[in-house]
């Protein structure tokens, strides 16, 4: 069984702070399990896109170390020509608008990149199980609700990345 782990921006922000203990803990857990986290392009852009964020301790995230060491990888581009990917992302956009009681205009299609990527790796057979690590509850719920409706029941799991989750994470989490 192949499980793909998809990580959102919030995971790395959660790792921040001066001591970086949580970052080291996550790194150790992934390396011991021999697993890497995939991040959508969108997340990569968010992590590196704001020099102002450097002023914050939690904005100073040593994620480039993860690329060098191979336990964070940027995922393939989303294939919008894949009808499942495109459909699920449109549905997720509506789902998030509804969940947050906002007009659809405030969400962008790329906001649903996590959900789209999950659908893509399942549809291409690259993974038979996907774990979504995120602090974006509306997107996590969208993935858990929508992807099973397209024939992938019990194949997607949303884990909310709390402080406690990262403080106690071990390789076991990725096996």
């Amino acid at each position: 069984m192949t499980t793909v782990y998809i990580a959102d921006t919030g995971v790395f922000v959660r790792c921040g702070g001066p001591d970086k203990n949580k970052f080291q803990r996550l790194r150790r857990a992934l390396r011991q399990a021999g697993v890497s986290l995939r991040i959508p392009q969108r997340v990569y852009t968010e992590l590196g896109g704001d020099p102002a964020a450097d002023a914050y301790p939690s904005g100073n995230i040593p994620y480039p170390d993860g690329f060098e060491e191979g336990w964070i990888v940027v995922a393939d581009d989303l294939d919008y020509t894949n009808p499942l990917v495109s459909t699920v992302m449109d549905e997720a956009r509506r789902f998030i608008a509804n969940e947050t009681d906002r007009s659809e205009d405030i969400t962008e299609k790329a906001d649903t990149a996590l959900v789209g990527l999950a659908a893509q790796v399942l549809d291409t057979g690259e993974a038979d199980h996907v774990v979504l690590l995120t602090t974006d509850k509306p997107a996590g719920r969208a993935a858990e609700t929508l992807i099973p409706q397209h024939g992938f029941s019990d194949r997607i799991e949303f884990r909310y990345v709390s402080v406690e989750f990262l403080e106690s994470i071990t390789a076991q989490e990725f096996r």
Binding site: T9, E46, G49, T100, I106
Partner: peptide
């Protein structure tokens, strides 16, 4: 409550998504 995420908050507060996520977590 799960009724907003950092991406929507960033747009409504005119912050970068990263800064929004940092303050929401804090």
């Amino acid at each position: 409550d799960g009724t907003v995420n950092h991406r929507i908050a960033a747009r409504e507060l005119d912050l970068s998504p990263l800064e929004a996520e940092i303050i929401l977590q804090a």
